[in-house]
Amino acid sequence: DRIFMTRTEALEFLLKAHQTAVDKIGHPSHKQTPADHAAIEALDRLLLDVRARRVDQFQINASAAQIIVTD
Score class of each variant (00 low, 15 high):
residue 34 P to L: 10
residue 23 D to L: 04
residue 41 E to R: 13
residue 38 A to C: 05
residue 1 D to W: 02
residue 39 A to C: 06
residue 33 T to N: 14
residue 42 A to H: 14
residue 30 H to C: 05
residue 14 L to N: 00
residue 2 R to Q: 13
residue 4 F to P: 04
residue 20 T to Q: 15
residue 40 I to V: 13
residue 58 F to N: 00
residue 5 M to K: 02
residue 23 D to C: 06
residue 55 V to Y: 02
residue 71 D to K: 05
residue 47 L to Y: 09
residue 69 V to Q: 02
residue 55 V to M: 04
residue 43 L to K: 00
residue 7 R to P: 03
residue 15 L to W: 12
residue 16 K to F: 07
residue 51 R to C: 06
residue 46 L to S: 00
residue 13 F to G: 01
residue 18 H to V: 13
residue 57 Q to K: 11
residue 24 K to L: 11
residue 32 Q to I: 14
residue 8 T to V: 13
residue 66 Q to N: 07
residue 43 L to V: 03
residue 41 E to L: 08
residue 51 R to V: 10
residue 42 A to E: 11
residue 53 R to E: 10
residue 9 E to Q: 12
residue 6 T to L: 03
residue 45 R to K: 14
residue 13 F to K: 03
residue 71 D to Y: 04
residue 65 A to H: 08
residue 61 N to K: 07
residue 38 A to M: 10
residue 6 T to M: 02
residue 44 D to G: 14
residue 50 V to R: 00
residue 48 L to Q: 15
residue 32 Q to N: 13
residue 16 K to D: 09
residue 28 P to I: 10
residue 38 A to L: 13
residue 23 D to V: 08
residue 36 D to Q: 07
residue 2 R to N: 09
residue 36 D to M: 08
residue 23 D to Y: 03
residue 44 D to S: 15
residue 12 E to L: 08
residue 56 D to Q: 10
residue 34 P to A: 12
residue 41 E to H: 12
residue 47 L to G: 01
residue 29 S to A: 11
residue 65 A to V: 15
residue 29 S to F: 06
residue 8 T to W: 11
residue 51 R to E: 13
residue 12 E to W: 05
residue 12 E to V: 05
residue 58 F to Y: 02
residue 67 I to H: 02
residue 46 L to V: 02
residue 45 R to V: 05
residue 9 E to Y: 02
residue 9 E to F: 02
residue 22 V to C: 05
residue 57 Q to S: 14
residue 61 N to Q: 09
residue 43 L to I: 13
residue 23 D to N: 12
residue 28 P to Q: 09
residue 5 M to V: 03
residue 55 V to T: 07
residue 5 M to T: 00
residue 7 R to N: 04
residue 19 Q to Y: 04
residue 22 V to A: 07
residue 43 L to P: 00
residue 30 H to L: 08
residue 20 T to C: 06
residue 27 H to G: 10
residue 52 A to K: 09
residue 53 R to A: 10
residue 35 A to Y: 07
residue 16 K to H: 11
residue 43 L to C: 02
residue 1 D to S: 01
residue 58 F to V: 02
residue 25 I to K: 05
residue 8 T to I: 13
residue 44 D to L: 13
residue 44 D to M: 15
residue 10 A to E: 00
residue 26 G to W: 12
residue 12 E to P: 00
residue 31 K to L: 12
residue 2 R to C: 14
residue 44 D to A: 15
residue 19 Q to V: 05
residue 43 L to E: 00
residue 22 V to N: 05
residue 47 L to S: 03
residue 41 E to I: 12
residue 11 L to C: 04
residue 14 L to M: 01
residue 31 K to H: 12
residue 4 F to Q: 06
residue 20 T to A: 15
residue 66 Q to P: 06
residue 51 R to M: 14
residue 61 N to L: 08
residue 8 T to G: 10
residue 19 Q to N: 06
residue 24 K to H: 09
residue 45 R to T: 07
residue 59 Q to I: 09
residue 59 Q to M: 08
residue 41 E to P: 02
residue 60 I to P: 02
residue 57 Q to P: 01
residue 43 L to A: 01
residue 31 K to F: 10
residue 47 L to I: 15
residue 24 K to R: 13
residue 34 P to Q: 10
residue 45 R to A: 09
residue 33 T to Y: 07
residue 12 E to D: 14
residue 16 K to W: 09
residue 12 E to G: 05
residue 37 H to W: 14
residue 63 S to H: 12
residue 34 P to K: 10
residue 69 V to R: 01
residue 13 F to A: 05
residue 28 P to Y: 01
residue 69 V to T: 02
residue 28 P to V: 08
residue 69 V to C: 02
residue 30 H to E: 09
residue 55 V to F: 02
residue 33 T to S: 13
residue 28 P to L: 08
residue 69 V to L: 10
residue 62 A to Q: 10
residue 21 A to R: 04
residue 48 L to S: 15
residue 61 N to R: 06
residue 55 V to E: 02
residue 58 F to E: 00
residue 10 A to M: 02
residue 68 I to D: 02
residue 68 I to C: 05
residue 71 D to I: 14
residue 21 A to M: 15
residue 3 I to P: 01
residue 33 T to F: 06
residue 39 A to K: 07
residue 51 R to S: 14
residue 11 L to I: 14
residue 52 A to M: 14
residue 65 A to Q: 10
residue 55 V to W: 01
residue 24 K to G: 06
residue 18 H to E: 02
residue 33 T to H: 07
residue 26 G to C: 10
residue 23 D to I: 10
residue 47 L to H: 03
residue 61 N to S: 13
residue 33 T to W: 06
residue 60 I to Q: 02
residue 22 V to K: 11
residue 65 A to T: 12
residue 28 P to D: 11
residue 45 R to I: 07
residue 46 L to N: 00
